[in-house]
Simulated assay, not measured.
Amino acid sequence: MPNNEIQLNQHIKATPAAVWAVLTDLDSAATTLTGVLSLERVSGEGYAVGTRWRETRKMMGKEATEEMWVAEVEPERRTVVKANSRGADYTTCFTLTPSGDGTDLSMIFGAESDTSSVLAKLLMKVFSGIATKATEKMMAQDLRDIAAAAEAR
């Protein structure tokens, strides 16, 4: 994972299979995740390494569309999604762990600048606090949405 990362956890009262089914259902993401305005599949069917899509979200008052792809898959255990935008590589790792009456879902999001300019580093420091809070809020909502959908199955 990149060195600038945020980790959140959510206990879900559903089996890892039910959580996995929601997490990997790209075609329903825009209805399952309240933060996703639209999702357009670019390549691949289902959910497998190499599957690509464009996801549009509203963040900090602006719509942003990012192309994302599945980088790793361990069914019902772990998946890694990647994106590259505006000079940074983004990695999101989801880990599912059976726990008591359900599943603990861990979401780790990281960003790593692929530029070493002084200006880029300065901008990352200036905006990182604001962006971090907005990203944490979005991640927490995604986890709540995933939990609600999995628990309703």
Rank of each mutant, 00 (worst) to 15 (best):
T91M: 07
A21Q: 11
Q141R: 09
L119I: 03
G110H: 03
E40C: 02
D104K: 13
K133V: 15
A17K: 13
W20G: 04
G110P: 05
G50F: 06
V70M: 04
E74D: 11
A30P: 10
G110F: 00
K133S: 11
E74Q: 12
A21H: 06
Q141E: 05
W69L: 08
E112N: 09
M59R: 10
V22A: 09
A30S: 10
A21Y: 03
T34G: 09
K121L: 10
R54W: 00
D142M: 02
L123K: 14
K62R: 13
V126I: 13
E76S: 08
V36H: 01
E66S: 14
P16I: 09
D101V: 12
I6Y: 01
R41M: 05
L37Y: 01
K13M: 06
R153E: 10
E76D: 14
F94Y: 14
R86V: 11
M60S: 07
E72H: 12
Q10G: 01
V42I: 15
T15G: 02
T31D: 13
M68H: 14
N3Q: 13
P2Y: 03
E112H: 14
I12V: 14
R52N: 03
R57Q: 11
I146E: 01
E66R: 09
K133Q: 09
R144W: 00
N9C: 09
D104I: 12
L105I: 05
E112S: 10
I130M: 12
N3F: 09
L122V: 10
T31V: 11
W20E: 03
A150S: 05
A88G: 10
R144N: 12
T115F: 06
A71I: 12
R153C: 09
L122R: 11
E151G: 01
V126F: 06
S128V: 08
V49S: 06
A30H: 08
R52T: 05
T92P: 02
L123S: 08
L123T: 07
D145L: 00
S43N: 05
M138K: 13
T51R: 03
A18F: 05
G61Q: 07
S43C: 07
N84V: 02
D89F: 10
D89M: 07
S99D: 14
L105T: 09
V118K: 13
A148Y: 02
S85W: 07
F109S: 12
Q7E: 10
L23D: 02
T15P: 00
W53C: 08
A18D: 12
S85G: 15
F127G: 04
G44S: 03
D142L: 08
D101S: 10
F94K: 07
T24E: 02
L123M: 15
D142I: 10
E136C: 11
S128Q: 14
V49Q: 13
L8T: 07
H11D: 15
E55M: 13
G61W: 07
D145C: 00
L123P: 02
S43P: 04
T56S: 12
P75Q: 04
P75H: 01
V126Q: 06
